[in-house]
Design a binder for these strands. Sequence first.
DNA 1: TAGGCCATCTGGTCCT
DNA 2: AGGACCAGATGGCCTA
Length: 222
Amino acid sequence: MAELKSLGGEAYLALAPGYSPSAFAYGAVRGGGEGPRGSYPGGGGTDFHPGALGKSAESSGEQSGDEEDGFEAGEKGGAAFEREGKLKGGALGKKPKEQRSLRLSINARERRRMHDLNDALDGLRSVIPYAHSPSVRKLSKIATLLLAKNYILMQAQALEEMRRLVAYLNQGQTLSTPLPATLNPFGQSAVYPFGGAALPGCPEKCTAFTGAALCKHCNDKP
DNA sequence: TAGGCCATCTGGTCCT
DNA sequence: AGGACCAGATGGCCTA
């Protein structure tokens, strides 16, 4: 296998200055019930190439249907199941066979749900600027979300800068004099997905990106 | 070998 | 009741 480059953990800490493991207050989300359930915007990422899902597709067998997809699911889940003996719940007053089949169907549903989630993440990866090259390791889930968030912020700010620029030009001004820094979309006020902090290993890591410079400490493109 | 990331199973909770 | 969502647990793979 080729050597894979990746964003170090510190890299996406830099993406989100406020990030820390504790920032993921899991409990805070629980029971919130915000937003409708039951459908994923985009219909489960059907527009993404499923082949991109390397590991999950391999390890789970990805049998199209829910039929009997329970225990080809591999040693991971299978082992867990074995360990548990028989569905430790037992709370459901059903016969073991029914019970098992119900469990299998629930597992399959959950697996599909997670695959849809991963498809959506792949879709997100495909539209945010980082190197989509075989030699570059796929962004982790958390890195994908943090980078996407910063990219959105960057786009929003770029749009705002452009609006100001248009307004400025509409006032009959010329560009013969330099724009004020706040009106210069390419000036110091530009926002970078990596925020203000230099990346560890900068500029090496920044050169892994194919889009515009992502770190203000190294504006050189590869 | 430790740590990061991931897939999967599982039980609980909420919604339709 | 059934489905969706969530978070914890577990174990595998990979990299530093």
